[in-house]
Every structure is written in C-alpha cells, then in structure tokens.
Design a protein around this nucleic acid. Structure first.
Length: 476
RNA sequence: CGGGGCGUGGCCUAGUGGCUAAGGCGUCUGGUUUGGGACCAGAAGAUCGUGAGUUCGAGUCUCACCGCCCCGACCA
C-alpha cells in the first residue's frame, strides 16, 4: 500500500518537480522572492557535482581566482549587447555606508565586465597568453519566473574566462570546455546534445555560444552549461590587448564558460520517477542506506550485524554508507523516505538476515529487491554501483531516442512532446514565429551536423533554403 | 509586465456576520513499538498578510496596499 505526497509525473510535471524538491528535503523558498534555501541534502548533491567539475577544470590547467561580487555600472554598460541582454535582470546597489553612492554598483549577473578591466592590466605581451582563469561564485539575475534550482535569482556556478592570442586557440578552448561539460553530465548519467546556439539564443555579447542541452522526462530541454567564443568584442571595450611577436598590438580573443547548480534540477528531472528522486551513485550523498529491523530480543544482534556490514562496505569501496538508527520510525517509513531521497541502494537487515548472513538489497534504479549473502553484496557493490549508473544512463538515453522527432514542416509538431529535428534556414524571424506558435525555440545545432548538408533543402518554417539540421524544443 | 489563483500556528485545511478561531500533519516530552508511510498520553505553537472602512459585532462584507504561487514573455 503506497501513500504518496508526490504528484505523478503524468498528471503535472511541474507539480511533481516541486513535490520532489520538498519531499526529498533538497531546498525550500526563502523570505526573498525568487531566492532559494538549499538544504544539506540538496547542497551535498551540488557539492559532489562541483567537486567533479572542479577536478575537470583544473585538469586542463585553468587556475582559480576570485573577483568581487560588485561591478561598477559603467563597466557593464560598456559592451552594448551585453548590457542590453542583462540590464532587465540586474540588481543594483544604490546605497553604501549609509550614503547614496555616486557610482552605482551592480551585483554581478556574470563577471565578464568585472574581470576584463583587470585582464587588460594583466595582459601586456603575447607572453602573458593564454590566460585561463576560473572562479566559483554566486551571481544574481532578477528572474521574472524563478524555479527551484533551475532558475533562482541567485545561483552558484563556476565561470571560466580565458584570453588567447588567436581566434583558433580561443575557438578550440570553447569546444574543449564544452567537452568537460559533457563529461560532468556523464558523471551524472545524463547524455547531452552538444553543439552551437542560434543567433537569437546566443549569449549577450558573444560571437558564438555552444551548449550542452539535456532532455528531461517531460520532453523539455534544460540548458546544461554553455561555453562562449567572445571574439574580440569585450577586448575592444575593455582594451584587452597584447604586443605580439610582430611588434604590433592585437586584441585578445576571449572565451567564457559556465556551469551552475541548475544541474541539480537537471538530475531530478532527468532521472526522477513517481516515487521521487533517483540519484546516480556518483552524486548521491548517501549511496547505501542500511535499515536495521529488530525486536527487543534481537536488537543487539541485528545492530551488531548491521554495523559489521557497514564496516565491510566502507573497507571494500569507501562508499558513502548510512545506517538508519532512528528508533522512533517504522521500517516502512524509512523505506519510503530513502526512496523519495533517491538513495541508490538500500540494505534491509533484520533477524533473518543476521542469522543467515545475508542482506535484502533494494536498488532504486529498478525498484527491485533481492536476498543475497552479505559477502556477495559487499564484493559486488562496486559493480552494482556501476550497473545502476549505466541503467539510469540507458533509460534516459532510450527515452531521448524515442523523443527526438524528425519533421519536415512546422505543423508536424502538433501536440507531440520532445525534441524536433528539422532542416532550418536559421532565419531570425522564423524562430520568433516558432516561439509564438509552439512556445519553442532552437536548442542546438548538434556538433556532428555543423558541417553536414541539411537532410531537406527547404526550411521547415519558411520553405527557403535550409542551412543545417537543428534541434528545437520547449525549454526550462 | 500580461493572465489565473491564494494569503487562518512550521505545513495543509475548516470556518460563508454572533460566545473562548476548530481539526489533521509535523514538532517537543514520556512510554510502548519496529519486515512497506506505527500507537498511547501529554505539551508548545495564531495579534486570521497590512491598513482603512461598513456594522452593536469582521477571519467572514467593501476598498486600497503588500506578499506569495502557478501559466506565459525574459533568462544559466
């Protein structure tokens, strides 16, 4: 008999998402409109993602720095497209120390304008290049429609900013960092669609934006991370130039790339089911929960056995294991709670198991139980974690596969959900039309389609000459 | 900024002009329990979003304001 406080996905996906965030104790809303409070369990998931992301970034030789949260308004206004893109969502500090400020300070919505005046000082010679820096920080964008993790007004992320002597190097960096983002999502058992953004969708001030797009369980897209080629747009504004070997001054070619805690939201929406969260082991705060089940007369025996199994697991694979010792809750309550929280593996250990030297093992990816010897469970745990990761990956991959629809005309969209592949003219007006009609925009020109001829010579919207095969979808 | 909805203990809900604002969940204390969301007893916790107004009397009616949520447009 299952009682659930979670709305089924098929009833209302948005409600389901909010219910999971609440029931799994990930986050709650705060006193401040649009800003969230991330609770310990939710923050740990982010920490695990962040650690992997940090490892990947540092493996490329980029170094960490920290720049201030405040940016002089004048800096932000310097790059025309940039300010136009961000002005509507700026938080601005007008008072400090009890006085009105002459120079208003923006709370950074992103740090190009905060960092590049300093880059101009640091970069003098071609010998100072490349400069590849990263910072982990919080940024603020006054969002009109916030959503837990996916789009809070304040969020944590990493933003990397590099400068190169040549366009070729900068463009290579853009794709290299995008590959890291694909890898970090692989770490979360999430396949991505990697490629480039349209003119309408690209970053304010960029020459080119690349993206990893994720398809989640309702067929919508989440932009998982972006990597931009900024060209010399910002360099010209902030005077980021270097003396080359040719004894001439040149503007630096810049990139920026960012990954935010919306990834937590992506994991929830990509893997979750009607019972709640299903966490890939790599980002599960608790990978194995042991629920001891005992009566007064066998309590000591059961708890001893449970703690032995815990010790063996920790010795075998340094797993994140928790023994749920709360004695004011029934086993059934605990089962449900850990399922909602997405713990990949649960071991039920009671009198029967203690006597037989077995465990009852529940895996959250398949929601199945089996009884096996404790030795087998321990020695097979590493493989089981890998299997769970793979199952989640495969399930999502299969879902994505069946939800990419090839269409030749805009009207074929109808009420289907998912991503739509179509040959497109890349005409700006046509993208607006698509948005009005189907609330849908281009998501990505997949990397492997960038140099390929479109399958259909005619654009699916305008009938004009198509340039490439793009993916379109509704998005978060 | 448009459209819709809602403000009553931490959360959910009752209350539809009349006595001391009721119940469930949760929390705390003690006890009893433990194989799929346990039970008993007790306790704490609300100036009913704010301000005016109507009335003998307002959680309830009127007006204004504030805030929140959901659906769009904007965005990582």
């Amino acid at each position: 008999m299952k009682k659930t406080t979670i709305t089924p996905q098929s009833d209302n996906f948005a409600d389901w998402y909010q219910d999971v965030v609440r029931e799994a104790d990930l986050a709650e809303s705060s006193e401040v409109r649009g800003c969230g409070i991330v609770k310990p369990y939710g923050y740990k998931i982010w920490d695990l993602m962040r650690a992997e992301m940090a490892r990947l970034i540092e493996s490329t030789g980029a170094e960490n720095v920290y720049f201030p949260i405040f940016v002089p308004m004048a800096n932000l206004e310097a790059e025309e497209d940039h300010v136009e893109g961000f002005a509507p969502e700026l938080a601005v500090v007008t008072h400090g120390g009890g006085k009105e400020l002459k120079e208003k300070l923006a709370v950074r919505p992103t740090s190009e304008a905060a960092m590049y005046p300093t880059y101009a000082k640091w970069i003098q010679s071609y010998r100072d290049l490349p400069l590849r820096l990263n910072q982990w920080c919080n940024v603020v964008r006054w969002e009109k429609r916030p959503r837990a993790f996916i789009r809070w007004s304040e969020f944590q992320w990493q933003e990397g900013h590099s400068a190169f002597a040549t366009e070729a190097e900068a463009r290579a960096e853009v794709w290299q960092m995008l590959d890291l983002y694909e890898q970090v999502y692989k770490f979360m058992a999430i396949p991505v669609f990697q490629g480039r953004k349209s003119e309408v969708e690209k970053f304010a001030g960029a020459e080119m934006t690349t993206t990893v797009e994720i398809m989640v369980r309702d067929g919508k897209a989440i932009q998982g991370a972006t990597s931009h080629y900024l060209g010399t747009n910002f360099a010209k504004v902030f005077d980021v130039k270097y003396r080359g070997e040719d004894e001439q001054d040149h503007f630096a070619h810049q990139t920026s790339w960012g990954f935010a805690w919306r990834a937590v939201g992506a994991v929830i929406m990509a893997h979750g089911d009607d019972h709640g969260l299903r966490l890939p082991p790599n980002v599960a705060p608790i990978q194995i929960v042991i629920v001891p089940i005992y009566k007064e007369e066998n309590k000591d025996v059961v708890l001893k056995y449970a703690s032995d199994v815990e010790a063996q697991l920790k010795a075998a694979g340094n797993f994140r294991v928790k023994v749920d010792l709360r004695d004011n809750m029934s086993p059934g309550f605990k089962f449900n709670e850990w399922e909602v929280k997405g713990v990949p593996v649960r071991l039920e250990i009671g009198g029967k198991e203690a006597e037989a030297g077995t465990v009852t093992l529940f895996r959250r990816d398949l929601n199945t139980k089996e009884n096996l010897t404790a030795d087998a469970a321990v020695s097979g745990m590493q493989q089981l974690m890998a299997d769970i990761h793979e199952t989640l990956w495969n399930q999502l991959s299969e879902f994505q596969g069946t939800h990419v629809h090839r269409i030749e005309s805009i009207d074929e969209i109808g009420d289907q959900v998912g991503f739509f592949e179509a040959s497109w003219s890349e005409d700006v007006a046509s993208e607006k039309l698509l948005k009005e009609k189907y609330s849908m925009v281009s998501r990505v020109l997949p990397k492997d389609k960038m140099d390929a001829a479109p399958k259909n010579a005619k654009c699916f919207i305008t009938g004009k000459e198509a340039k490439h095969d793009w993916l379109f979808a509704k998005s978060y």
